[in-house]
Every structure is written in C-alpha cells, then in structure tokens.
Design a protein around this nucleic acid. Structure first.
Lengths: 144, 144
DNA sequence: TATTGTTATACTCTATAACTATA
DNA sequence: TATAGTTATAGAGTATAACAATA
C-alpha cells in the first residue's frame, strides 16, 4: 500500500513535467487544446453534431458554438445543416483542417523522437515498454 | 531507425491522452496551468522576481504582471519591494497559496493512485519502471 | 541607454443567462 | 414543453506597444 501511494505521487510529478513538455513542443497553426482536440475527434469519428462535440469535449454548448465559429472563420471546419432534424448542425473538418492536424501530429512526434534519442537505450526501452500500460491508464479514466 | 520513429509517434499519441487525463483530474481552487505552475515554482525555489517568473514560465512580462495581480487579489501570493534594486518586485507565495498547491497535488496523486489500482500489476510495474526515464525525458527538453 | 515593471488595448477562450427555431 | 443552437455579456488569460521609474 505504501508503495502504491508513493507511485501515485511520483506519477503526479512526472505528469506535471510531461504537460509542461507538451505545452512547449512546437506546434503549427497555434491551436488551443480544445480546438486541436475537436479537430482530432472530427478526423477520427467523422462529422458530428454541435451538442455532441460540446458534451464530448467538456465544454458548454455556447462555448462550442463560438469555437466552431472561429474554426470555420479560419477554414478548418465546415457547418452543414443536418438532414433530418432542421434544428441540428453537423460540423465536419475541411481538407485544410485535416492537413493542419496531421502536420501538428508529425511535428510533435518528431520533437519527441529527438528527445528520445538523447536518452540511454535503457530509458528508451523502459518508456517503450510502458506505453501500452499508459494507454490503458488513460482509458481507465474514460471507462470508470 | 524505423523502430525509433515509431516510438516518437506512439509516445505522441500517449501523451495526448495523458494531457487530457491531467486536464480532467479534480483540482481544488480552479487555477490555470500557468497559475499553478507559478505557485509551484515559488514553493520550490522561494520568492522570485517578476521578470524571472515571466522568463521561466514562457509568458510575457505584462502577462506575468497581470497573472500576479490576480493571484495577489485572491490572496495566493504577496509582492514585496526588492531590497537592493528599487525597480524590482519580489513575488512570494502566501500560506494560503502554499496550502492550495499542496491540496491540489495530493488530490491529483490520489486520483492517479486510484487509476493505477485499476490496472494489472504488470502494467503498474511497467509504469513504475518508466518513471525515472520519463523524468529524464522531460529534463532532456529543459537541458537541450 | 538599458532594465524593471505597469498601463492601454485587443483578441482568444470560456461561462451563464436569455433568446429563437424546431420537435 | 423539450431540444438544438445562437446571441449577449462578462471574466480569465494572453499578447504587443507605449510608458514611467530606476540603474
């Protein structure tokens, strides 16, 4: 038990550092975290309703209206009327938006790769080995 | 080489998830990331100059003036005149601020501990084993 | 003249409350 | 009446430019 308590504390410290790291990695297009997350989701899951996006991103409905308005102004997403329910709005990512997301993803991956290359092979192996476990850690949050 | 390129991409994916995770963990006091980081730094390294804080946090000098003004208004930091250079301002954390930082830290650690306990022992071990390496990864960024 | 910090101004991001249109 | 979305308004958080005070 004491070992486990300590690992939560240790992990907290490390994650704080990782958040700092991510925040500072070069990222094209200067998107906010929520904007990037919305674009990523639209790429992954296809066009979605505004309300659905707001709920999934943990943002208010007006907040999502405004975020989508900015993204639309910047040519990254497109709004189309929902076919069946005339109240609804479908948001979909444009080609420009998709390219931007991909470019950012590659940039971050390359920056991380560069950092990994500075580490000892043992450290690289340890991180590699922990990636599936960390993925499950993240999913444990979503699931529970 | 191909193995390494893939690990950058994998790590990028995992870190995106971890950032989402951290963002959503319960946190008392509703501090912004920069505010939390400034308070943490003041706790760790003691009172600091405004310019020093701005540089370390990657924020403009006016931005730091305004952030410190909000933190002061909320009773979390205190500004004192610098002893030697009368242009300078020293920022230090108050008892209230210190307690808030500590409370948040404990909350996050407990939430993470709870998530860790949902994983297989193997996954927990893999994460535990990678923590020092991840710490060095973060430090590689700062150093390079 | 250079440095430290503040003030003025503007934009993004986000919330809540009040509204409109459709179901 | 309930749901989908928008508009109005306000505050946090950030930037750049212009300024004041001190070195």
């Amino acid at each position: 038990m004491q070992i486990e308590r300590r690992s939560g504390t240790e992990l907290e410290k490390v994650l704080q550092g990782l958040v700092r790291l991510i925040r500072q990695l070069a990222t094209a297009g200067d998107l906010s975290m929520t904007a990037a997350s919305v674009l990523g989701r639209l790429m992954r899951d296809g066009p979605q309703r505004l309300t659905e996006l707001a709920n999934n991103e943990g943002v208010s409905q007006p907040g999502m209206t405004q975020l989508v308005a900015r993204l639309e102004r910047d040519g990254l997403v497109r709004r189309t009327a929902s076919t069946d329910d005339r109240r609804g709005v479908l948001v979909e990512v444009t080609d420009t938006g998709g390219e931007l997301v991909e470019r950012r993803r590659v940039q971050r991956a390359e920056a991380l790769q560069q950092l990994l290359s500075l580490l000892d092979p043992d450290d690289r192996a340890a991180i590699n080995h922990a990636l599936p476990a960390l993925t499950r850690l993240v999913e444990a949050r979503t699931t529970s």
